[in-house]
């Protein structure tokens, strides 16, 4: 479980590590800790899974991945764990979640975000997911974003964003 100091470290690093030679030292000074504290706590949070990874967070859109589709699938509940894990492992899928259905207007329970540089590339990815799901694909849709109305890297309230 994360304690208050862990949370402060997470919060202090969500806008990014400082691009100065000793970034952990800079964070430590800000929080009244030592740089060893900061590094050890980050390592522990990474080991426990509270931090998923530490590294560069690329902006897909800016790097040419202009076609970003939210693919949604209706998959039988008995097989969603197994199939969801397989879909999540595809290298072009950036997020893959099980979410509840809202019948009758929303029958989809598996969400996978795909990213491509062209519409054809994304179409191919969607087909790959459909092939993987096979007979367990009871219906699907793809929702493309037409407008980003808000995207904040760092929240203005005092809790950090997830990715």
């Amino acid at each position: 479980m994360l304690d208050e100091t862990d949370r402060k470290i997470i919060q202090a690093t969500q806008a990014g590590l400082p691009l100065t030679p000793q970034p952990y030292q800079a964070i430590a000074e800000q929080l009244g800790l030592t740089s060893d504290d900061v590094m050890l706590r980050l390592a522990a949070m990474k080991n426990s899974g509270s931090i998923r990874r530490i590294g560069a967070v690329p902006n897909h859109y800016k790097l040419g991945y202009r076609f970003n589709g939210m693919t949604v699938w209706n998959v039988p509940d008995e097989v969603i764990d197994e199939l969801g894990q397989q879909v999540g492992r595809l290298d072009f899928v950036s997020h893959c979640y099980h979410r509840p259905r809202h019948l009758p207007e929303w029958p989809y329970n598996l969400f996978a975000m795909v990213h491509g540089k062209t519409q054809q590339a994304v179409d191919k990815q969607i087909q790959q997911i459909a092939d993987l799901l096979g007979d367990s694909n009871l219906g699907c849709d793809v929702l493309y974003s037409t407008k980003i109305l808000k995207k904040t890297g760092f929240r203005t309230s005092n809790r950090p964003v997830t990715d």
């Binding site: 994360l2 949370r7 997470i10 690093t13 969500q14 806008a15 990014g16 590590l17 691009l19 980050l42 949070m45 990474k46 899974g49 509270s50 931090i51 998923r52 990874r53 530490i54 590294g55 560069a56 967070v57 690329p58 902006n59 800016k62 790097l63 979640y97 890297g153 809790r159 950090p160 964003v161 997830t162 990715d163």
Partner: peptide
């Protein structure tokens, strides 16, 4: 803006 940052990425629902 080719990267939004370098730093820790937190899984959903670990905080909040």
């Amino acid at each position: 803006n080719f990267i939004s940052r370098i730093g820790p990425v937190i899984p959903p629902n670990h905080i909040g």
